[in-house]
Structure formats: structure tokens, C-alpha cells
Design a binder for these strands. Sequence first.
DNA 1: CACTCTACCTGTGCGC
DNA 2: TGCGCACAGGTAGAGT
Length: 280
Amino acid sequence: MPELPEVESVVRVLRDGVPTLVGLRIVTVNVAWDGVLSDANGDLDVAELEGCGFISVARHGKYLIFHLECPRKPSRDLIIHLRMTGRLFLVPHNEALARHTRLVLMLNNGLALRFDDPRKFGRAWLVDDAATIIGRLGPDALKLDPAEFCARLARHRRQLKPLLLDQSCVAGIGNIYADESLFRAGLHPQAISSELASDEIRRLHSAITSVLEEAVEAQGANIDGVFKAGRFAVSVYGRQGAPCRVCGSEIRKIRVGQRGTHYCPECQVLSPGDVPHPET
DNA sequence: CACTCTACCTGTGCGC
DNA sequence: TGCGCACAGGTAGAGT
């Protein structure tokens, strides 16, 4: 389940690894599953990718941004979203396709950039300007200015959990790190954004920042028996029924905005003004 | 505007 | 053992 820290790990490998993708050129493209290219924003024209060179590898929220120099246009941006189960890596040119390989970009150094995705949720776009795709997103969760974060919370009267997952508010937080950030901030997932006190907002901001920075450092989350990309140890996500690491209370799982939500009933108390839904 | 539902997918893990 | 099914997740789009 790639969220911001997992996507950042991919960026660092492709940008800073040996070999780096930067400076390499796409020779041919192999589309193993058509659906990876089609989307409401238009289909990717494979022929336009051939001959393009990688200028930079970056990220905004969970979107990967490959800035390209192209034969027929000054520049283009290849955008890839890994969604739930997508993986991106460099392999030797002749490496056999895996069962879940969706897209292969053959490169001019004997390697290939391969996109594997069992659940077919991941997508790729080729656009003149990355803003076409990421323009609607809020600021990246790792570059979140406290004052702007405060303004964005105040602007809506919404439950914190769905608001944190809304990529147009803040980009990069998914279900795991939303739960982890709210736990660290000591805030209930159903607390109302516009009703937070300023110290609560500060706590949430620093919780998001520290959780994500630690997770980037650990190269992603490590969730018991499910997801083991990195070493970040979760406190609440998937730990329903287990004791809270802080107070020993039993971690609960409820549904908030259709999403599984994990929290500690002792550490994350709803303030009197907020009305919780009686959910299980 | 805030929320809910549905669609998109398939591997996993449960109950029977 | 094997079958069926609910479930997980991020996002877009439609509907309330």
C-alpha cells in the first residue's frame, strides 16, 4: 500500500540509486496491459514516449513525476500512480515479464523500467505539464506549512480522518498514516476540523510531519503479515484488539467515511462538542 | 458543501 | 480440500 513514504523510497532508488534513471533514454515501450494507460484524463500515446530521456524523478503526494525531454516536444511529464499494489523497479533488458507486469520501458543502457501491479489499480499518464494531473492536489504532506495547514483545516467543517485522506487538502496521506498521525496527535478521527484548538492543530501538524519523516527514514511501513515494504512500526493501524503501546487500552476499529479506522479510545478522546457516529 | 455509494481489481483469509 | 464471499486499498464520478 504505497503512501507518501513508500513512494518517496521509490523516488530515491530511481533518482539516487546506481544506476540512476536520470540521463537514460527510452528506446521502446511494451504495454503488457492496456488499462494502465487509460483514464478519464486521456490515454497515453506510447509512441510519444519512445526516444524521450529522463531529466528528473520527483514526487507530489503519492504521484511519481518523471520529467522528460522528448524528440518532438520541448518536454513532457510521465506521471505514475502506484495506487494499492503497484511496484516500479529497474530490471535487466531481457528479464521475463511477471504475471502482473503492466508496462515496460526499455532503456538505452540495457535495463528496463518495469511497472508491476497485481490489482490493476495503478495508472500512467503522459502530459505536457504535470500540473494537468497534480494541479488539483493540496500541498505535499512533507512540505506542509503550519499556517497553511491551519487555514485548510479551518476552511472545512469535516471529520479529521476523511479530511486527511482528501488529497486536494493535503497530498500523500493514506489510510495507514492518517490513523498513525491522529494517534500520535492524540486526536479522535471523528473530531471536526474547524473546531480544533490551535494547539491541537499544531499537534496534528507535527504528528503528520514526524510520522512521515520517520516512515521515509524507515523506507515505509511494516504491517504484520500484510505489508512489509519497510521498517516503520505502526501503533494503531491493523492493531485492533491489541493493547495501546502508550496506555494499554484495547485498540478499536471503526468505520469513518467508509474507511477502516483504528484508534485508541483512551489516548484519542472526542471533545465534548463533537458528536460521534455510533458505529462499530 | 459534506457526505455516501459505486466502480475499478484481485489476493487473502475467513466460514462452512 | 474446496468453494464462496467479504474485505482491503486510492480515486473519480454520480447521487443525496
